Simulated scan of single mutants.
Amino acid sequence: MDHQTSLTQHISAPADKVWAVISDIPGSAATLSGIDSIQMLSTGPYAEGTRWKETRTMMGRAETVELWVSQCEPPSTGRAGSTTVKALRGGADYTTRFSLAERDGGIDLTVTFGVEVLKPTRASKLMMAVLGPIGMRITRKALARDLREIAAKAESL
């Protein structure tokens, strides 16, 4: 990936409760303060292929992006679970992976976010070199807030 960041939050809740929060796409706008609204594009439970539009305000601008689940491994006996969400926007491939790992009677939830320019040009390479680190710092702050809010919700269930 061209730019990538990873953060981990310990959550004092079992894997099934953490999974219930991260897989509740229709309820995510109520859980995560960074999400303005959700529009579901598919029906059924959270699974590979689940699609939705998510509107977030970042740097004072509302942006709506279509996302989908590209990989889904719910927690089960002996496995804490993981899921990957993708988006394509502006010639870039965005990947967000949530991984759950049991630790100290709870779960370490790690989110890894990355962006890859699909057909890089000189101009896009220059822009990523200059603006990429700034964008990743802003994204890292938003992801840290999301993790704290996921933890608070899972711990309250």
Rank of each mutant, 00 (worst) to 15 (best):
S23T: 15
T77A: 14
A13T: 02
A62D: 08
E116F: 12
A29H: 12
G60S: 03
S99Q: 11
D36T: 12
G34C: 10
K141C: 06
D2A: 06
E102F: 05
H10E: 10
S23P: 12
L118C: 13
G91F: 11
A30S: 14
R103L: 06
S76M: 04
Q71D: 13
M1D: 09
G44V: 01
R97T: 15
K53F: 11
S33P: 02
S82K: 04
G106H: 08
S42P: 13
T55Q: 02
A101N: 03
R148W: 00
I38D: 04
G44W: 00
G78D: 11
T50G: 01
R122A: 15
E54N: 04
W19R: 11
A144V: 05
I38L: 03
W52P: 00
H3I: 09
R103Y: 02
A80G: 08
V115S: 10
Q4M: 07
A30V: 11
I25W: 08
K141I: 07
R56F: 03
A152Q: 06
D16S: 02
L157H: 08
L88M: 15
K86Y: 05
I35Q: 03
M58K: 04
P74A: 05
S124P: 04
P74L: 05
T96Y: 08
F98V: 10
P75I: 03
